[in-house]
Design a protein around this nucleic acid. Structure first.
Lengths: 222, 222
DNA sequence: GTCCTCAGCTTGTCTGAGGAGCTGATTCGG
DNA sequence: CCGAATCAGCTCCTCAGACAAGCTGAGGAC
């Protein structure tokens, strides 16, 4: 029998699977170490290490004398890894969720300083779309989108967008390598229109135009 | 000597401290288990559990026969920290962004199995709203909202929601402690209406009702 | 110089023992 | 009969020792 992973890791995966399946709901006490060891056919210390690993991932919590309890149904995964593994369409739908709502809020909360940033980043983007290399164009495009997010004045949305940026950047570069016309299809006008709607304090229009633009982006990869 | 935490956890914290201080840079091999055990004055199995915990947090990686290696300088639970520090209104706006889009997608993609989950999570929620303790009610409410997210069949949105859950759970419990009438204001009907719109494959209505419900939630805390 | 072998290290696993802490049933006092 | 104190039995926590499995680098064979 070939064993790629240590027994303790395999045991942790098995426990995680059972927790995810609902066999042990949140708050539930797990069977004792000796019981689990017998069930999985491993030693007690192996079970203990598996439990420790899941405790480190904030899925289990052990209290001396009481038992081991489930505190989360799923491991709180590293976001970079989640986005790297996820389908690009799923990522883009996540981005759409964040950015449409941000555009809506920005239309209410944008300051004169935000509008000034829009103007600069749009000008940069137009210049880059014309003749600069792919990575410059991508950065200019992301800079404008980040300006929209910033104008929503919501720290959580901003952090969410920044988490998505590396994954989006890579996807854009890959797309540009395959299709040089791509930059012309999602052109400057759509971005200008989003900025205008936010400037005019029109939440519905800003949301709709953002949705339209990002839906078009998503359509190019599927 | 008073011990608040188990020795293994204390050892894990000490290792994390040394890693963060730069004593062992990324890629560095840690001293052997027996050496570390002697240094910290604990048994070898205790060190092993501490290493396992940090392995679960993606800070260490152990390879049989080779040693234990540092793979990250800091525990990557950044998002928990971000959400903990953020204003609750910002968090709820982030949740609104995720959940309205998820409701829209769910209206197109929901399966019969999803509808079944709606039915029994709604039933649980109604029961819990009636007479069960706060934490049961909160779990039942979250279970329904998670069912909506799941029906969108988008891994990124699901992970995003799960990231938000602990923070939302805490906020709900705090609110309920201050205001026992809260559960009656956001009542069962609003949840049923969302489920109905998704069942009827009406994206716009599902989005609008979700937005209305979550806006009301946000209004209670500001 | 290149490849192979192997001794000596590392982590992985199991077992047995005793300590510390929680929980629920039992018992005692009212 | 009811409430509170008691405690036995369960749980996890820690240690120690033994052996297995796997990697690494030094040294020898070619």
């Amino acid at each position: 029998m070939i064993r790629r992973h240590p027994l303790a890791e395999q045991a942790a995966e098995e426990l995680l699977r059972r927790i995810g399946s609902g066999e042990w709901p949140i708050g539930q006490k797990l069977p004792g170490e000796t019981t689990l060891a017998a069930q999985l056919g491993v030693g007690r210390s192996t079970i203990r290490e598996a439990v420790r690993e899941l405790a480190g991932r904030r899925v289990l919590e052990s209290r001396q004398g009481a038992g081991v309890f489930v505190i989360a149904q799923q491991a709180s995964e590293d976001w970079d890894q989640v986005l790297r593994r996820a389908d690009i369409t799923d990522v883009l739908e996540g981005r759409l969720a964040i950015e449409t709502e941000a555009a809506r809020l920005a239309a209410s909360r944008r300051t004169p300083a935000d509008l000034k940033t829009f103007r600069y980043t749009l000008a940069d983007r137009e210049k880059a779309a014309g003749k600069l290399p792919d990575d410059w164009y991508v950065e200019a495009d992301l800079a404008f989108h980040r300006a929209v997010i910033t104008a929503a004045h919501n720290a959580v949305l901003t952090e969410l967008f920044d988490t998505f940026v590396p994954r989006i950047r890579r996807a854009m570069l890959d797309m540009l390598k395959l299709d040089q016309d791509h930059r012309h299809r999602h052109d400057q006008a759509a971005h200008q229109a989003i900025a205008d709607a936010i400037r005019d304090r029109d939440p519905e229009l800003a949301t709709a135009r953002t949705r339209e633009h990002l839906s078009a982006v998503r359509a190019t990869v599927s």
